[in-house]
Design a protein around this nucleic acid. Structure first.
Length: 368
DNA sequence: AATCGCGTCAACCGCGCGGAG
DNA sequence: CCTCCGCGCGGTTGACGCGAT
């Protein structure tokens, strides 16, 4: 293969391109098209190597290049695809019109990767880093044995609904549970869930999705409203109460139900629904009403209700009611990155904290 | 005002693949 | 089959800008 570098010839310019060089290159390609990169610079009157010309064109001068900040959807796509493809930047770029592999690679390295690391997520495997999060004992001792044995059955098999659980994910879920359920006998136990915990949790959701895609190839989300504080109104989770999402499993959307708007977000079987109306009062979820593998967190304040359905996070029925109150009427919970803004239905996203959102504190109040 | 440190990103580099001769 | 060429890919570098001190 011995091949001489294309740029080591005397007299060839390197470094930043000048306006004149750009102009020459664009004019030449507009007139003759690209290709034959080795001979192009000579024909175009450029003292550059062909490789440099190709890079300049494909990464900067091409007319269909999209400039500006990556959108949430683009970032979401990058993370998803990276979980599947790894550092196949060109393959990822092929799914993002107007973005180059170089741009995506840079964005990954300078933005996404750092944030993943900061949150304890391995950017290579997309799993929580166990060197930072050795939590397996919490699941068995803290969650199962001590705090939650009354109402959570941790199954011997973690494989439910054809959905193999990532143990790391389960550990993190258990942490959240255990930090929230510390004293079931104390009704006014207030336990803060910090933004860091929420960040870790939402990333574990994503990581779990990436590593354990449901093998039934469709994604479920709860399709009925969660009404006020009457647990009996919560629909049973038989098949007719779910809507399949065959498209982007990471999508979120709004759905009107009477005067109530719900935001649904699907990550595999994880659903986050946000009844977005002026709800006032306690909101409960009787987890008996959810099928095996669907547990629900709820929080509410005077104006906001957020339900966090953890599909297949733990697989046995829970027989309990949870009332979660946020610390103030203006706070926003970011579990799952869900950010409930107003009834006009501005969508919010599972990955919202990637956008440097500053989640406020979120409190669990009055367990059981 | 000067310096430093850090983040960003365009550009470079080396390597490998596929095709042509 | 071998060699060379053209090209694309992924990793890395370094110039630049900007905020903090």
């Amino acid at each position: 293969m011995g091949k001489s570098p294309c740029c080591d010839k005397d007299g060839l310019k390197k470094g930043p391109w000048t306006v004149e060089e750009d102009k020459k290159l664009v004019e030449y390609i507009q007139k003759h098209g690209h290709g034959k990169w080795r001979t192009l610079p000579k024909n175009a009157g450029l003292r550059r190597c062909g490789k440099s010309c190709r890079l300049r064109w494909t990464n900067y001068l091409r007319p269909d290049i999209k400039r500006g900040r990556f959108t949430f959807e683009e970032e979401e796509t990058i993370i998803q695809l990276h979980g599947v493809l790894g550092n196949k930047w060109s393959a990822i770029a092929a799914q993002l019109p107007g973005r180059t592999d170089n741009e995506i690679k840079n964005y990954w390295n300078t933005h996404i990767k750092k944030r993943l690391l900061k949150m304890g997520i391995d950017p290579v495997t997309h799993s929580p880093r166990l060197d930072l999060l050795d939590l397996s004992s919490i699941l068995t001792s803290s969650l199962h044995a001590h705090y939650c044995s009354q109402f959570i059955n941790v199954p011997s098999s973690l494989n439910t609904n054809g959905y193999a659980m990532n143990p790391d994910f389960l550990d993190l879920t258990a942490t959240l549970f255990s930090s929230s359920f510390k004293s079931p006998e104390v009704t006014q136990n207030v336990q803060e869930i910090t933004p860091e915990v929420l960040d870790q949790f939402q990333y574990s959701l994503l990581a779990n999705h990436l590593h354990n895609p449901p093998n039934n190839s469709h994604f479920l989300s709860e399709n009925r409203p969660m009404h006020s504080n009457n647990a009996s109104e919560i629909p049973p989770s038989n098949a007719s109460n779910f809507v399949s999402c065959h498209q982007n499993p990471m999508s979120s959307y709004w759905q009107a139900d009477g005067d109530i708007q719900h935001q649904y977000m699907n990550i595999a079987e994880t659903s986050v629904s946000v009844p977005n109306h002026g709800f006032d009062g306690s909101c409960r979820s009787n987890l008996d009403h959810f099928s095996s593998g669907h547990h629900v967190f709820q929080s509410n304040d005077a104006n906001k209700v957020q339900n966090f359905g953890l599909g297949s996070s733990l697989s046995s029925p829970m027989s309990s009611s949870l009332t979660w109150n946020s610390s103030s009427t203006t706070s926003t919970a970011y579990l799952g990155g869900c950010n409930n803004e107003d009834r006009d239905g501005h969508s919010s996203h599972i990955m919202s904290s990637l956008y440097d959102a500053a989640p406020s504190s979120f409190f669990v109040n009055g367990i059981m």
